[in-house]
Design a protein around this nucleic acid. Structure first.
Lengths: 168, 168
DNA sequence: GCAACCAGTTGTATTATGCAATCGGTATAA
DNA sequence: TTATACCGATTGCATAATACAACTGGTTGC
C-alpha cells in the first residue's frame, strides 16, 4: 500500500486495504483454523480452490504487510513455512465476528458451521485463549499449560465429530 | 450470489461473498456512523470518493442481499432513503473489530482514529447500545430512552472535538 | 424559466481475478 | 541411477471487477 492508493485515513478503510480482497482472509483463516503452513497445503487443502498464482501473490502481499512471515523448512530445501505475526493473529476477532454473522444469516454447511457456533458461544474469552495458542505455534511463545483440551483442539474435535456423523 | 459462484459453505467465506468487496463495508460504515441515507450523501460525503456507478451497483446488491432497504423520500419524488436491515445493523461488530485492528496497526488519521478508540474502549456493551440506536433510526423500533448522550452522539461529539482542535 | 439538485446510466480504460499449463528443482523408493 | 511424485512458484491468456468522466431524464425552489 503506497500513499497514492490509500483512499483515506479511516481505520476501517485502511484495514480493508490490507485484508479486504477476496482471498487474504481465507488464507489467514486456513492458517489459523486449519494449521496450513506450507504453500501446497494452502493451495490444495482449502475448500475454495484458490489458484496458485493468486495464492503466491497474496502470500507475497501479506509478507510485505507484516501479517505473515516465511521461514525455510529444514526438512525440505524448497519448502517454506508461513507463520502468522502478532498482527496476523490479532485478526482473529474480525474472523470470529464474520463467522458469527455468516452463521446467523447465511446458508452455512453443517460441518463448517459447528466451529462458527463454538467460536461464537465461546466469545472473546475463547478467542483470547485461541490467540494464545496461535502465539505458541506461530511465534514460539511459550504459554502456561492449561487443563483439558485447548481451544483449537475443541474446535477441531467438534468439526471431526460432525464429519464422522455425516459420513454414516 | 448464485449457487455456482458460491465457493464454499464456510461462514467466513459466505460473509466475504456478501460484503467482501472493496466498497460494501464502507457504504455500510457511512450509513452507520455518518448517518448517510441518500444516494447523493453517500456519493459526495465519503472520504474515499466512490464512483457513482459503483455506488449504484453496491446499493443494488446490498438491497438484493437484504442488508439495506430503500424507501421513497416523501419530501422529494426522486429521493430514496436507504436504511439498514437488522442483518445490516448486526455487521457493526465486524466493523468495530476492523476499526480496532486498523487503529492499532495502521496509520490512522487523528480525527478518524478517535472514533475507533472510543468504539474499542466501549467494547461489546457500547456496540449493543449503538446497535439499539441504529434499530431506532433505521427500523423505527422505539427504545427506552437512557440518560445522557447516546453512543452515536458520543462518537460524533468526540470526532467534532478533534476536528475543531485541528482547525485552530 | 432557469439554475441547482437528484438518482442513477453509459462508454471506455485499467486493474484484479480465474484457469490451465508449465518450470526448474527436490525428495523418495526401486 | 532412474523413474515418479512432490515442491513453490511463474507464464500466458480469458474474463470479471473497478475507475473515471461525461451524460441522462427528471425534480425542486427561486
Amino acid at each position: 500500500m503506497t500513499d497514492t492508493d490509500r483512499r483515506s485515513g479511516c481505520p476501517i478503510n485502511l484495514t480493508l486495504e490490507v485484508v479486504g480482497d477476496k482471498w487474504s482472509l481465507l488464507v489467514i483463516r486456513d492458517m489459523m483454523f486449519g494449521n496450513r503452513r506450507h504453500f501446497r497445503e494452502l493451495l490444495t487443502k482449502s475448500e475454495e480452490r484458490i489458484s496458485s498464482n493468486i495464492l503466491a501473490d497474496r502470500l507475497k502481499t501479506l509478507l510485505e504487510r507484516g501479517i505473515v512471515t516465511r521461514d525455510d523448512d529444514p526438512s525440505h530445501k524448497q519448502k517454506g513455512i508461513y507463520s502468522l505475526t502478532e498482527q496476523g493473529i490479532e485478526l482473529l476477532p474480525i474472523l470470529a465476528q464474520m463467522s458469527a454473522w455468516g452463521y446467523k444469516y447465511l446458508p452455512v454447511s453443517e460441518e463448517l458451521g459447528i466451529r462458527a457456533r463454538l467460536l461464537s458461544e465461546g466469545g472473546p474469552k475463547m478467542w483470547a485463549e485461541f490467540m494464545d495458542e496461535l502465539r505458541e505455534t506461530h511465534l514460539g511463545v511459550k504459554q502456561r499449560k492449561k487443563a483439558g483440551p485447548s481451544a483449537g483442539e475443541r474446535l477441531q474435535a467438534a468439526y471431526e465429530k460432525v464429519v464422522a456423523r455425516k459420513k454414516k
